[in-house]
Design a protein around this nucleic acid. Sequence first.
DNA 1: TAGATTGTTAATCGATTAACAATC
DNA 2: TAGATTGTTAATCGATTAACAATC
Lengths: 202, 202
Amino acid sequence: MTVGVAARLSRYLQVLTQSKKMGKDRISSQEISDYTNINATQIRRDLSNFGRFGKRGVGYNIDSLLGEIRKILRTQGQHNIALVGAGRLGEAIASSPIFAEHGINIAAVFDNDPEKVGGSIGSMEVGDIRTLPTAVREKNIIVGVIAVPADSAPQVADELVGSGVKIIFNYSEALLDVPHDVTVHTSNPAVDLLHALYFHLT
Amino acid sequence: MTVGVAARLSRYLQVLTQSKKMGKDRISSQEISDYTNINATQIRRDLSNFGRFGKRGVGYNIDSLLGEIRKILRTQGQHNIALVGAGRLGEAIASSPIFAEHGINIAAVFDNDPEKVGGSIGSMEVGDIRTLPTAVREKNIIVGVIAVPADSAPQVADELVGSGVKIIFNYSEALLDVPHDVTVHTSNPAVDLLHALYFHLT
DNA sequence: TAGATTGTTAATCGATTAACAATC
DNA sequence: TAGATTGTTAATCGATTAACAATC
């Protein structure tokens, strides 16, 4: 499977999850297209790579399609992730239902500020960053989320990599140097905004 | 210009901005590639569409390339945006330097909670959501950022659209229905995480 | 000069789309 | 049956990559 297909399947998953919440029980490729801006033919083609999940003239059953896509993406189980940074952004991430909804469990929160260590975020205690390696090993964590200011981000990235984390979500604007077997996703709303503006102005 | 090219140019801009901060004054396509995971040939090809900005054997001058890309994306000036939601996420967004660095100015913050209206975020006063249409008109705002819980997001989207906003950044997991001339970018870290995990597990 | 890196060509591959028969 | 929507084909387009001459 290519990167593109997996990324799109994840987005279908979100639309299905939300549509289910809104009480719908079936959906057409055209409806998914309206929400994702992905062409309806592309959606049907992506799904038909893996089986015949729809009913002609009717659409897709939301529950059964959710199950099929989860099976394809192997996101049935729980995944533990570590959050580094107990500031405003860290709090916002920890309190968001977005992760839990997709079986992603924030298993540990860390900070290097002694003022914050020992405090709590949601129901979790903020741990000292020096206990990161132990937590990563014990809780089988492969994903780390960086929610610290840009100037501390490179050091946090080193610590995550040193602890054995293989996927890093970087919410700072810093550039991170990591080994080739580690994946970095940098999330920068300003960058997205720039190209959205470009097309608006054109 | 296609969507892809504009999106990539925006990412080059981020790498250049950060590299400049780190004191570098030139950069090669290979270095940009290391940070973005975009193929170096692709980067050179994207840039050479618009001119010959590099020096063979040397690379690109960071200052001059920054200027060229800003010219191409027309992001020279200031853009005013409206932020709706003065909770933890709203505060995190308002206090982040990411937007200011790219000439994006958070011109107004709104909330519907009377407890929060009149309070301040950074140096800005939180306005009543009912004053949104006036602010959008007076400050020439075309971008709205939604940082409220999913259940209020659809209503906020309606109010933004009604006020004349044309680009919405949605940080809730809600699905938004908007007219065709309005662009919605939904930012969902959990969705990104799912497909990152897929490739790790494979 | 020798080494490095751009700019560009040519070839390949995946994404996108329109169209429509199949069928619920 | 009539209407709707899937699954699939065929054609097109843009992205990606390797390779390398040009040139700093």
